[in-house]
Simulated scan of single mutants.
Amino acid sequence: MWIKAAEVLETDLGDEIVLMHPGTSEMFSLNSAGRIIWTRLPAPEAQLVQALMTQFEIDEATATQDVRALLEDLKDRALVHHEP
Rank of each mutant, 00 (worst) to 15 (best):
W2T: 07
I3G: 02
I3E: 05
A5L: 08
A6I: 07
E7S: 15
E7V: 14
L9V: 15
E10M: 08
T11N: 14
D12I: 01
D12P: 09
D12T: 09
D12F: 04
L13M: 14
G14I: 04
G14D: 01
D15N: 15
E16D: 11
E16R: 14
I17K: 02
I17Y: 07
V18G: 06
M20R: 09
H21G: 09
G23A: 06
T24W: 02
S25A: 12
E26Q: 13
E26N: 13
E26S: 10
M27A: 12
F28G: 08
F28D: 07
S29C: 12
L30Q: 00
N31K: 15
N31H: 12
G34I: 05
G34A: 05
G34V: 10
G34Y: 02
G34L: 07
R35E: 11
R35D: 08
R35Y: 09
I36R: 09
I36A: 13
I37L: 12
I37F: 05
W38E: 00
W38N: 00
T39V: 09
T39N: 11
R40I: 03
R40P: 10
L41Y: 01
L41H: 04
P42C: 03
A43M: 05
A43G: 06
E45A: 07
A46I: 12
A46S: 15
Q47P: 05
Q47E: 15
Q47T: 15
V49R: 00
V49Q: 01
V49W: 00
Q50P: 01
Q50I: 09
Q50T: 12
Q50A: 12
A51G: 04
A51H: 04
L52G: 00
M53N: 03
M53L: 09
Q55V: 08
F56K: 09
F56W: 15
E57W: 05
E57Y: 05
D59I: 01
D59G: 09
E60W: 01
A61P: 01
T62N: 07
A63M: 02
A63H: 04
T64H: 04
T64R: 09
D66R: 14
D66C: 04
V67A: 06
V67T: 13
R68D: 10
L70P: 12
L70S: 09
L70M: 06
L71G: 03
L71A: 02
L71K: 02
E72L: 12
D73W: 12
K75D: 06
D76K: 12
R77A: 11
A78I: 06
V80S: 03
V80Q: 09
V80I: 06
V80D: 10
H81V: 07
H81Y: 13
H81N: 08
H81F: 14
H82E: 03
P84I: 10
P84W: 10
